[in-house]
Design a protein around this nucleic acid. Structure first.
Lengths: 333, 333
DNA sequence: TTACCAAATGGTATGGGTACCATAGCGTTT
DNA sequence: AAACGCTATGGTACCCATACCATTTGGTAA
């Protein structure tokens, strides 16, 4: 490998002078600068960011720890993160936890060793300890998507309660009285907040909350499929179903399709999270769209700001509004 | 920050002894080991991977440079990469080039500085120089998805020619004689190879190749949409269309839908790349499915092997077969 | 008892780059 | 001519962990 010393020897100067040229700091005469730059070009010298990182105590690397990039929602968040960080010459290390505490722990340790300058974390449920540990190590941290009660931490998330309220309100105004919700895991804030918004809308419409119509489960398709089948088997099935995320919505629609029920003629449906616009020929599902790209982008900008100014103003919680996108998946009753 | 010296002081030993405990190397008495481990726990010591990397000349980080994670094909590749590398305690830095040479150059430089142990690269078209530069810096490299003539380099890709042949063959056997292909950019190997497979199938069926039915363009939806519209405006439009990738297929289907043409009654269509199974309620498009996850996984394993054994056996080219998935988007003629 | 060896531990240099301080040349001010 | 300050450059120590060599202790073989 070519080092700064090789370049220095070739240019006939001291290593520190090469360093000055590279970083454009301090005094270097035009003649020397040229000689050094020639030497750099001739030797194809590439500065070693490890030793710079060691010296400066700064790596310009941040970690993005989320459940699964395969979900287009997270993909989009990841893209926002990448764009925001590359603007400031930061690199992103991507890690998938699959909602598994062990994986999250493993990655946290690995990333701390790597001296990442900051964490963007979508915490696995009930892992406040991880957050505390990162904070205690003095590494900047922004929590994404989920609210973590019990710790003071910067957070960027979407307004699950509000979005769910709007969606449900839309259904009640169409005349629906029996509305089911297929939410996510009970220990994830986004799940409970979506149920809370749903309940508030029902109350607003003076409808009773029927616990049979509320369910929690995983955020994956199978769960949407199975729970929809159960709903259809009820003595009095709902006239509308609210899917707690995009995957649940897919499972739900599959179940309806297989049961021979048409949307919206036989069942009105709405969902949280849009599916990526590129992927459907004809999007028809009415949804509360979360600004995924913006979420990634803003969380990253906030993180980089925290890294740049480690002085501790109070932690922020940025709640981004969702957007009600009305399409053709609901009918009036 | 807590360093190995702090731990050593606390445990009353020399730093090197702590190092031995951490890495489980050399002789350490049971008593000392315990004292050191206690000190580590008490101080929440986390070893600094930067200095280890500097010392060992190894970072356990690889780079994944692709065009855009937002495309589900690449998302899946990325997931394969992440899984394969985390198995061996490697981390992945993800970069999107958007097929832009300047971005690729910028990232290459940045990643070389960061002393990544290897590159997984989906090269922007006509950028052999980038590949040469990385190789010349002595960093392991595996090219993904695309064939780069003119350099000797490890490559993992899918069999575009073969997949295109199968798809086209399927259409000719259904009786189609006027088959159009909407390929990707002319300077990307996957595009030309798909056209080549298409042509071979036509020749096999003793059909003439009509250059009016062959087009190159971007891999994005708009391009698929526009070129489909042009095809429909021909005096003698095709009876079947072959979309060169998943996004082109979406654009194509949108154009057909807006033109009031039904699939497969009025137009038979096939595509390269499947859409992620999770994202469609009812997949109906007949496709040549590329093993995206496996591609990422195997390319990563190959890269890690190269990193572990820098001895240079001849470069490999691994060509993964595509899988013809027949659904309901074509009719016999 | 001496010689020798394994076990246990530590001192110092090293990896690549830079902060800090030192030095020297040269022009300007008084 | 002395004093000062700016420009230009270099020496040394340090960031953190570890390779290498050295040293000490205790035990076993001759």
């Amino acid at each position: 490998m070519t080092t700064i010393r090789d370049v220095a020897r070739r240019a006939g100067v001291a290593p520190i002078t090469v360093s000055r040229v590279i970083n454009d700091s301090g005094y270097v005469s035009e003649k020397t600068r040229q000689r050094v730059e020639e030497a750099i070009a001739e030797l194809n010298y590439v500065p070693n960011a490890l030793s710079q990182g060691l010296r400066f105590n700064k790596t310009n690397v941040i970690a993005l720890v989320l459940s699964d990039v395969t979900n287009p929602f997270w993909t989009t968040v990841a893209r926002g993160t990448e764009d925001a960080s590359s603007e400031e010459n930061y690199s992103v290390i991507l890690c998938n936890t699959d909602e598994d505490v062990a994986k999250q722990d493993k990655y946290t340790d690995l990333l701390l060793r790597r001296q990442v300058d900051g964490f963007l974390l979508v915490p696995v449920s009930n892992t406040i300890d991880t957050i505390r540990f990162i904070q205690q190590q003095g590494v900047s941290l922004v929590v994404l998507d989920r609210q973590m009660p019990g710790v003071s931490v910067d957070t960027v998330r979407a307004d699950s309660e509000g979005g769910a309220y709007e969606l449900t309100r839309y259904l009640t105004e169409l005349g629906h009285r029996d509305i089911a919700i297929l939410s996510g895991p009970e220990d994830v804030s986004t799940s409970t907040q979506r149920v809370a918004g749903y309940q508030r809308a029902l109350q607003h419409a003076h409808l009773e909350v029927d616990s049979e119509l509320i369910s929690f489960g995983s955020f994956y398709q199978d769960s949407g499929y199975e729970r929809t089948m159960k709903l259809l088997a009820l003595s009095r099935p709902p006239t509308a179903i609210f899917a707690g995320n995009n995957f649940i919505a897919i499972g739900m629609m599959k179940a309806l399709y297989e049961s021979g029920l048409r949307i919206p003629e036989d069942m009105s449906v709405v969902g949280f999270d849009d599916l990526p616009p590129g992927l459907l020929v004809r999007p028809f599902l009415t949804v509360a769209d979360q600004p995924a790209y913006e979420m990634g982008f803003r969380a990253t900008k906030l993180l980089l700001e925290r890294i740049a100014n480690p002085g501790k103003p109070p932690h922020q919680e940025i709640v981004l509004p969702t957007r009600l996108v009305i399409r053709q998946s609901c009918r009036a009753i």
